[in-house]
């Protein structure tokens, strides 16, 4: 149970970074850390004590495999998170080009 709490603490660090920091790159970093924590939580739920990786081998029969379903979900989520990070970075670079700063409190005229 303690390991779940450590994982949630990592998630809370990401949330803190998103809510509290004012630099856009720091906000992107917070989102990345929160994504890491969520992926880690899925894989932690899937783990089986003294389990083996979910891959058959030709000569031995393996009975205690870990759960392959969350692995599949996390595998797609990681690639999506990379694409969304690239999208966020593109928007941040555009904002820097227009306003000359990464500080979100200095960015006015957000409307229109």
């Amino acid at each position: 149970m303690g390991i779940y709490l450590l994982c949630l603490l990592l998630f809370c660090l990401g949330i803190y970074c998103v809510l509290r920091k004012r630099n856009i790159i720091k906000i992107i970093i917070g989102i990345i850390i929160a994504e890491y924590a969520v992926n880690l939580f899925f894989v932690l739920v899937a783990y089986r004590m003294n389990g083996r990786a979910p891959i058959l081998s030709p000569d031995t029969t393996i009975t205690n495999m870990v759960d392959p379903l969350p692995h599949a979900l996390v595998l797609t989520a990681i690639v999506i998170s990379l694409a969304s990070t690239a999208l966020l970075v593109a928007i941040a670079m555009r904002i820097y080009e227009k306003y000359g700063t990464f500080d979100i409190t200095k960015i006015k005229e957000l409307k229109g």
């Binding site: 992926n39 894989v43 899937a46 783990y47 990786a53 870990v66 996390v74």
Partner: peptide
Amino acid sequence: LKAPDVAITQLVV
């Protein structure tokens, strides 16, 4: 945690 597929993908990503 015995997830080699996810480990490879996480490394390169």
